[in-house]
């Protein structure tokens, strides 16, 4: 895989996610503190930071799995408010991959994939299943289509979860530590799928501590701590010349 060639398809200056002055509290806990972030179409952003720093909460605010209390979030031009229709519209366009896969255990792999398109996008069943098979082939598990999630390994389940999101033809993909629940030998198979996706120009926000992945794929790396974006830079600069002490400390911890 060639990192440089991926980065050469530069994102246009076409904003797809805009976050202004975002605050979020869980009770008294100030989890997000004045977050400002703009993501352009085709951007690939990796977010890292210590546990509890608010990384998950931030990306979960983008598809409103968490409700923010202050500030403004616009996704593809639509502002996230209490309006359910808007929320559903945004969720159609924003795929999400979870740490623990969250496949639907009572459905087969194929049904897991076809469900969203059939019920949300109103695609005919046959067409939805064809699309599902296409994406299953892309993540190299077409032969498992008739199985149930419980019969698959963790790495396979995560690839199914990615394919499930892709079936909705999303404009943005959010990943919340997609490889941290996996056995080490399965991490690569999932990262390879994500790298493929990056090569196709998908807009991605990835919470991850996989530094190799960040270096080869990301346009920008964000470092979060105590609910704030402490540092934001290109991967090269970020890893080689971290500016803040907290970043330096964090990097020294994860690189050993």
């Amino acid at each position: 895989m060639n990192g440089e060639s991926i980065k050469s398809n530069r994102p246009s200056e076409d904003k797809i996610i805009e976050i202004y002055g975002l605050h979020k509290w869980f009770g008294d806990l100030h989890v997000l503190n004045d977050i400002n972030l703009t993501v352009n179409r085709g951007d690939r952003i990796v977010i890292c930071g210590p546990s509890g720093s608010g990384k998950s909460t931030l990306i979960r605010c983008i598809n409103r799995l968490e409700e923010h209390q202050k500030g403004k979030i616009l996704v593809d031009g639509i502002e996230l408010t209490g309006n359910l229709k808007n929320i559903e519209k945004i969720r159609e366009e924003v795929g999400m991959v979870f740490q623990h896969f969250n496949l639907f255990p009572h459905l087969t792999i194929l049904e897991n994939l076809a469900l969203g398109p059939i019920w949300v996008r109103k695609v005919p069943k046959k067409e939805a299943e064809e699309t599902a098979m296409y994406y299953l082939e892309k993540v190299h598990i077409a032969e498992q289509a008739k199985k149930h999630p419980g019969q698959l390994s963790g790495g396979q389940q995560q690839r199914v979860a990615i394919a499930r999101s892709l079936c909705m033809k999303p404009k943005i993909m959010l990943f919340d530590e997609p490889t941290s629940a996996l056995d080490p030998e399965m991490v690569k198979e999932v990262l390879d799928v994500m790298i493929n996706l990056a090569e196709e120009g998908m807009t991605m926000i990835v919470v991850s501590h996989e530094m190799g992945f960040a270096k080869s794929v990301a346009h920008r790396v964000l470092f979060m701590d105590f609910g704030q974006i402490v540092e934001e830079n290109t991967p090269q600069a970020f890893f080689d010349h971290p500016q803040h002490d907290r970043t330096k400390l964090f990097l020294s911890q994860i690189l050993h």
Binding site: M96, L115, G116, M168
Partner: peptide, 22 residues
């Protein structure tokens, strides 16, 4: 688990679909 609800919601399923299908 909450993960099941979240997965259903993140696909854009509405309340009725989420309950009925998942």
């Amino acid at each position: 688990t909450r993960g099941q609800y979240e997965a259903a919601e993140s696909l854009g399923l509405n309340y009725v679909q989420k309950m009925r299908l998942i």
